[in-house]
Simulated assay, not measured.
Amino acid sequence: MAVTLAQLEAYRERLMDAKFSGALMVQDSSGEMIRYRSHSELAAALASLDAEIRNLTGGHRPSTVQFQTSKGL
């Protein structure tokens, strides 16, 4: 079964909530509790999710921003 972008983003939100609250347990969409051994393991799971989300959304975030300005007519 393929995981949708919405499911990945929802799980990422739960991981971020756990990270910022200091918790190491997260409940996934099927109700299963996942316990991480350390905050670095949780951060690695977040990095993996971010990479998968980037793959599903078509690649990389832009690394530069280009402005185009004019003084008008």
Rank of each mutant, 00 (worst) to 15 (best):
G72W: 06
E41H: 14
S63A: 13
L56Y: 09
K19W: 07
K19T: 04
R35F: 00
A6G: 04
E52C: 00
S29H: 09
A43N: 14
V26W: 01
Y11K: 02
G72H: 08
T4E: 11
A6V: 08
L49H: 15
T4I: 06
Y36F: 15
A47D: 15
Q27C: 02
S38I: 01
A18R: 01
L56C: 03
D50T: 09
I53M: 02
A43Q: 15
D50Y: 05
L15I: 05
T57P: 00
S40L: 03
L49I: 12
A51P: 04
S70W: 05
S63F: 06
E13P: 00
A23L: 03
S63L: 10
Q68P: 01
N55H: 11
H39C: 00
R37N: 08
Y11N: 05
G59L: 00
A43T: 14
L73D: 15
M16D: 09
Q68N: 12
G72F: 05
A18M: 03
R61F: 14
S21R: 11
A23H: 05
S48Q: 14
A2F: 02
Q7M: 09
E9R: 03
V65N: 10
Q7L: 06
G72C: 08
H60P: 08
L49V: 10
A2D: 09
R37D: 04
L5M: 08
G72Y: 07
A47W: 03
D50A: 08
T69Y: 08
V26K: 08
G59R: 02
E52S: 05
Y11W: 05
E52Y: 01
M25C: 12
H39T: 07
I34G: 06
R61W: 09
L5R: 07
F20E: 09
P62A: 15
T57Y: 01
R12Q: 14
E32Y: 01
H60V: 07
D17A: 15
R12C: 06
G58F: 04
M1A: 12
L46E: 12
D17Y: 09
A51I: 03
S38W: 04
Y11E: 13
V65F: 04
T64N: 12
V3C: 05
V26E: 11
Y11G: 02
A51L: 09
G58Q: 06
A18H: 01
D17F: 10
E32G: 03
F20S: 05
L8Y: 15
